[in-house]
Design a protein around this nucleic acid. Structure first.
Lengths: 124, 124
DNA sequence: GTTAGTGTACTAGTTAGATAGAACACTAAG
DNA sequence: CTTAGTGTTCTATCTAACTAGTACACTAAC
């Protein structure tokens, strides 16, 4: 996995995991890759993965059974979805509107760009 | 100034300065606050401000005269604008579209939110 | 020349983050 | 019981980032 140089790796791993949960790749209550496997997959140190898993466990998104592995919570997807929606409405969206204002872009241009984006991504 | 815990302060100061340039508060070729004044204003260490000023100077956004101070470049606003526009189109916008897809939001909802945002921000 | 305000350049110490490596405890399967 | 795979807990080392403090050189104004 390719990481952004200016943000902590353990937080970027968390975002990666939120994506896995949201897209359905990791359904609710299912076992996820072990710390060691994840470290190999992402090419980072196991301690860094442990940090992410521990954080998500404290949030309630993950649960674990010693000697067995980590599992997504029964309501993991709903949790991630509602937290991300709140962050989006309170922070990202206002920032987004501010940026398009600074750049002199109109909502109509954004809408057209979105149509192109969707055309590119419906080839499944 | 209030800083995000998970990103470097000197980069957040850079963003703050880009905003000053874009909004016209710091016109092209004009002197900007000294390192020491800026450190007091933002409540950080002068060394941290120096780091940001040096970075922006290496980018070509700032120029300086020893013993006198730092100045915005003659084309500072255009520079910042074109860099920000490129980053927006290549990175932020695709990510934005991906997020609204994950959250189940439609472009129409975004458009309505934008109208509300504009109503809130035209009270000048 | 003196002074105040600038940028510049150090040294030193602290913290967060990441890596490396090892050891131990628990669980399931054979 | 043995083994492989798991989470857990350490110590140690390294780098980036931030802070603190000091000193020096340059510029403009008096």
């Amino acid at each position: 996995m390719q990481f952004n140089k200016h943000t902590s790796i353990y937080l970027q791993i968390a975002d990666y995991m939120y994506d896995r949960i949201l897209c359905g790749e990791w359904p609710d209550g299912q076992r996820i890759p072990s710390i060691r496997d994840m470290a190999v997959l992402l090419e980072v140190n196991p301690n860094t993965v442990t940090r992410t898993y521990t954080m998500l466990q404290e949030e309630g998104t993950l649960e674990n059974q010693r000697g067995i592995g980590y599992f997504t919570a029964a309501d993991a997807r709903d949790q991630v979805l509602s937290r991300k929606r709140e962050a989006f409405l309170k922070s990202e969206l206002p920032l987004f509107f501010s940026t398009i204002g600074q750049l002199g872009l109109t909502m109509d241009q954004i809408r057209k760009a979105h149509e192109h984006y969707q055309q590119e991504h419906e080839k499944s």
